[in-house]
Nucleic acid binder design. Structure first.
Length: 377
DNA sequence: AAGTCTCTCAACCGCGAATCG
DNA sequence: ACGATTCGCGGTTGAGAGACT
């Protein structure tokens, strides 16, 4: 394996030692392949196509001893007839010693799906949550495996929503499913002090994209840090840390009553906490757990039913300015639209485009079959 | 056995962002 | 401020292997 070879090489390359590099793979040039293996760029001919072990060796030797301060100069310095771009790609995607090869684990697959639901096709960002994996690898795995798996389960791999009946081509479609894009929406934006941001980050980590079968595990504790995490959130924590960074992001999957629970009351400068959903407005009024309110115990009720109930509730409360208490936190129903929370340093957290990412149900990730989904009424 | 199809994945391409002079 | 260069990313391609007919 090139990676192992690279590791071995690096181990032996602490100085200008004799290179003990073994050709990482059997390379037997196919006379039929690469009919035009060279591309003229200016006066120089640049080789294209698959890399030979000799080229790998040259590149590894060069980078491990000199680094790659400038990729465009690497080919010349390394004695390769390649463009810098090709060298960079080869190193990053194949020769880097810290790469992990082999099949993706279930956990990795889960992480990819979860992060993809939030970030979309940002393969480089997704790969950052998978140590030793490259964006190219993740992208290929998505296109070749996960995508098909989701489709076969009746989910749109782009939106992560359930496909409409007409789009589902086989009998694997779930018995009860929704075509709606989401049950809930949060359109809250925050600006916060760093300590508040820490809480937000930590609270976001408590958001589980997974379906839960035990509803009692979902309510976040209203502690000062206000976090209840919920099964294997390590990666999500990282993800939401990222979400609190420079990118606009999405927060998903509140439909299963996994909560954001942030005790802003501890912040002297806080002015409120807005949770909204543009259709049902249910969290704010039902303690975040709609199926407790409307459905049989431990059952999640259908979307349409929820909507009906929500509309009734909304009508009842429409003209009121009430304050609701949830887990020791107060909400008001005027917060059905975006509500800004302002903290000291003016930093901000952007939930802008959460809507499309909000899943009606945690799906396909930590479940063995579609039957495990708690959609049945 | 041979031809065709499908799938995987390494590599390329083009574009936008960042950096440099 | 601006153009050139470099970098990084996502989409796409195509070779090769295996499955299927």
């Amino acid at each position: 394996m090139p990676r192992e070879a690279a590791k071995a090489l690096i181990e032996t390359c602490s100085g200008p030692h004799e290179l003990k590099f073994q050709p990482p793979h059997s390379f037997t040039p196919d006379p039929k392949a690469n009919h035009e293996p060279y591309l003229s760029v200016g006066k120089q001919k640049v080789k294209r196509g698959l890399w030979s072990p000799e080229e790998d060796e040259k590149l590894i030797r060069h980078i491990t001893t000199h680094g790659h301060s400038c990729w465009s100069s690497v080919p010349k310095l390394a004695g390769l007839q390649r463009c810098g771009k090709s060298c960079r790609l080869r190193w990053i995607n194949y020769l880097r010693p810290d790469l992990k090869r082999g099949c993706f684990s279930e956990q990795e697959e889960r992480t990819i799906i979860d992060v993809h639901r939030i970030l979309g096709n940002r393969w480089a960002q997704i790969a950052k949550h998978l140590p030793g994996r490259t964006d190219n690898e993740v992208k290929n795995f998505w296109n070749s495996c996960i995508k098909k798996k989701l489709i076969s389960q009746g989910f749109d791999p782009n939106t992560h929503n359930l496909l409409s009946r007409t789009h589902q081509s086989n009998k694997q479609k779930p018995n009860n499913y929704y075509t709606s894009s989401s049950l809930f929406t949060i359109e809250t934006s925050f600006s916060s002090s760093s300590s508040s941001m820490d809480m937000i980050k930590a609270s976001l980590a408590a958001l589980s994209p997974f379906p839960h079968t035990n509803s009692t595990t979902t309510a976040a504790a209203a502690t000062s840090t206000a976090i209840t995490t919920h099964q294997s959130q390590t990666n999500l924590s990282r993800l939401y840390e990222f979400a609190c960074g420079n990118y606009k992001n999405r927060v998903t999957n509140f439909g299963n009553s996994n909560l954001v629970n942030i005790d802003y009351q501890k912040q002297s400068t806080s002015t409120g906490f807005g949770i909204i959903n543009n259709e049902n407005c249910m969290w704010a009024v039902t303690g975040f757990e709609p199926h407790h309110e409307f459905g049989p115990s431990n059952n999640i009720i259908g979307h349409e039913e929820m909507q009906r109930e929500a509309q009734v509730q909304l009508q009842e409360k429409n003209c009121q300015e009430e304050v609701y208490k949830v887990n020791d936190h107060e909400f008001n129903n005027s917060g059905l639209i975006a509500e800004n929370v302002t903290f000291g340093d003016g930093s901000s957290f952007d939930f802008e485009f959460v809507d499309s990412a909000l899943m009606p149900c945690g799906i396909y990730t930590n479940i063995n079959s579609i039957d495990q989904l708690a959609w049945e009424c």
